[in-house]
Design a protein around this nucleic acid. Structure first.
Lengths: 151, 151
DNA sequence: TTTTATCCCATGATATTCCATGAAATCCCA
DNA sequence: TGGGATTTCATGGAATATCATGGGATAAAA
């Protein structure tokens, strides 16, 4: 499984190109699968990105819901319908669709924030504020162990 | 497994042809199996489409219902009886049968909406309304982890 | 023949690839 | 351990390929 960690602030050029941090690139599966998947995060202004395996897991979770149910429709429209496949060019860059840049209020700079199997792309100041908020709200929490055996 | 994601709005020309988004084409199994399967979606005005493997899964699910039950008859007549096999031409286009265009109220534009192993074809405004509805109804939901091991 | 469906080619727009540059980090050897 | 050499990295611009789409040609059906 990919492990995206750390934060990196990179420039977005006028064509919407940004270098994917080298650390992150190194975590991606194989050389021939030079793609990532990205979609607007459900409850923040950030963008969420992951590799194909992780997106397939999302699709599987959604598919495990009842077929033709409203829940299925919701997650499908919010995640799968919004997701884009982004190619990584020979120089390690991706092109952010304009729509996504607006959604995340990105202009000129992108902050990559590692989150294990996924990572987020934030407008730098927005992340600072978000980080401060969750820090305030949840400081002191403990993390539950896994209760079921990992298959 | 095919992963159809993102949304693409394409034109339907006067012959009923529409380009299947290149992203979707790339997800289809092999070059010689240039076909998709399509049927009217059960509870919306959209059309639902998938590759052969996914349709086979539908058939399998229907077959797993009690034989000769009303349920079996229902899903069989709504899905299997309505489904059509559409070829993809050399330029990556499909031809939508007139009957299906009426059913989905398509005129001139088709919105392809990715949903993992399947995708939907919507009249653009109808999708916007549908998306808004499910958003209203289920906003704030979180996606459950898989409770059963992936087979 | 008339109609209908399929295939083939042309075109503009968009997206992707290729190459060049400077800065920063890393390596190497005395 | 220092300092120069080398590689990696992020970034910019230009060349190239891909894609959606329209029109016409060809083949099959009525």
């Amino acid at each position: 499984m990919a492990l995206f960690i750390g934060t990196h602030e990179n420039k977005i050029d006028r064509k919407g190109r940004v270098s994917l941090p080298a650390d992150y690139r190194a975590e991606l599966p194989s050389e021939d699968d030079r793609t990532i998947y990205i979609f607007p995060s459900l409850y923040t202004s950030a963008l969420e990105a992951c590799d194909r395996a992780q997106l397939a897991l999302h699709a599987e979770r959604i598919n495990a819901l009842d077929q033709f149910s409203q829940e299925e429709a919701y997650f499908s429209s919010q995640i799968l319908a919004e997701a884009r496949k982004l190619g990584i060019d020979g120089d390690g860059r991706i092109v952010l669709p304009g729509e996504f840049m607006e959604r995340a209020q990105l202009d000129g700079k992108a902050l990559f924030v590692g989150g294990g199997p996924k990572f987020h792309i934030w407008q730098p100041e927005a992340y600072a504020a978000h980080r401060h908020e969750t820090q305030e709200a949840l400081a002191g929490r403990t993390l539950p162990s896994l209760t079921r055996p990992s298959s």
